[in-house]
């Protein structure tokens, strides 16, 4: 694996499968009384967040702590647009403090890429979501969740529904799921599909009802109400009618089909409460899996090649 995790597209199939297997081993920790491994003892992980995201931050924090790393949370609100401290100076500061890994969430697409490649620091960089670009650990936890429910993803049909245009989750998922052999269909009104999506090597559809009966996985994306003001769709009501997942549509799914959502959900907009709380929904499990996957990412970027559980130090957990 590379030294950084910037894009889901950087992962080979071998990398991705190693990550999923490692996550599976690490997930078993969650069922033990002591949920901690010494693997990253003495290593420092910095959560560098230029954008609010409590969920993602605490997920990475829990992951790093369960591997015994020291965790520093650095919330750098504001931006170089508002003439705060520049990304470069922040990076140099973290480097001087001896960060081994920097987990970065940033409002600007490409900011993790810059951190990793500008020569400011030697830390490993993990992209925890950048602008409307990518969110590779979300894609990994989504793939991990699918894998646990469906087994091998070869030939599995995954429908990703909603605001693809502004979604870093959709971009990372499209890349990773292709690598793992799944068939991805992006479903959205034409206004919310990116220009040039025909080059992404995925299917696209404007018709949710046509896609649902064949899907093994339905992943609903968050849609911000404010998009309505920029004419991406006329009203919330019309959006929900055409692209929302409700009980009626859920009835057309195959028996084994699971429903996912990266959160935070807007109940009543892209997904109704009865669907979100149904037994098809794996939304809460995605959160648990998120910690395991992020442990696997940190472990493999910082730790090494030995198996994560049992091999480091003599502790018999």
């Amino acid at each position: 694996m590379k030294r950084h995790l910037l894009s889901a597209g950087d992962l080979t199939r071998d990398d991705a499968e190693l990550l999923l297997r490692t996550a599976e081993e690490l997930r078993s920790l969650a069922d033990r009384p002591i949920k901690k491994l010494p693997a990253l003892r003495g290593r420092t992980v910095v959560n560098l967040f230029f954008e609010d995201s409590t969920r993602t931050r605490i997920s990475f924090e829990a992951a790093a702590k369960r591997l015994s790393a020291d965790v520093i949370n650095f919330s750098a609100k504001g931006s170089s647009l508002s003439k705060g401290e520049s990304l470069k100076d922040t990076s140099l500061t973290l480097e001087a403090m001896g960060a081994d890994a920097v987990v970065v969430r940033h409002w600007a697409s490409g900011a993790p890429h810059l951190l990793a490649n500008a020569g400011w620091s030697k830390s490993s960089v993990v992209n925890a979501g950048d602008g409307t670009h990518e969110h590779p650990t979300q894609a990994l936890l989504d793939a991990f969740t699918m894998w646990r429910h469906l087994g091998n993803l070869d030939g599995r049909r995954v429908a990703i529904v909603g605001d693809v245009l502004h979604s870093r989750v959709a971009r990372s998922n499209a890349l990773l799921l292709k690598t793992l052999g799944a068939e991805v269909t992006l479903v959205a009104p034409p206004t919310l599909l990116p220009v040039g999506v025909e080059g992404w090597d995925v299917e696209t559809s404007y018709d949710l009802d046509a896609v649902l009966p064949k899907a093994d996985v339905v992943m609903m994306l968050r849609v911000q109400r404010e998009r309505m003001n920029a004419a991406f769709f006329p009203t919330v009501r019309e959006y929900s009618r055409r692209y929302g997942l409700d009980g009626r549509r859920m009835a057309n799914l195959q028996d084994h089909t699971i429903v996912m959502h990266p959160g935070p959900m807007i109940r009543g907009m892209e997904i109704t409460a009865d669907v979100a709380d149904s037994n098809r929904s794996v939304i809460v499990e995605q959160v648990t899996n998120g910690v395991a996957v992020r442990m696997a990412v940190l472990y493999l970027l910082l730790g090494g090649s030995e198996p994560a559980v049992g091999a480091t130090e003599g502790t018999n957990l």
Binding site: G110, H133, R168, P194, V195, G196, V197, G199, W200
Partner: peptide, 14 residues
């Protein structure tokens, strides 16, 4: 604005 802007998540200038 083109395939690359979509991939990179950078707002397109058509």
């Amino acid at each position: 604005e083109g395939e690359l802007s979509g991939r990179l998540g950078l707002r397109g200038w058509p």
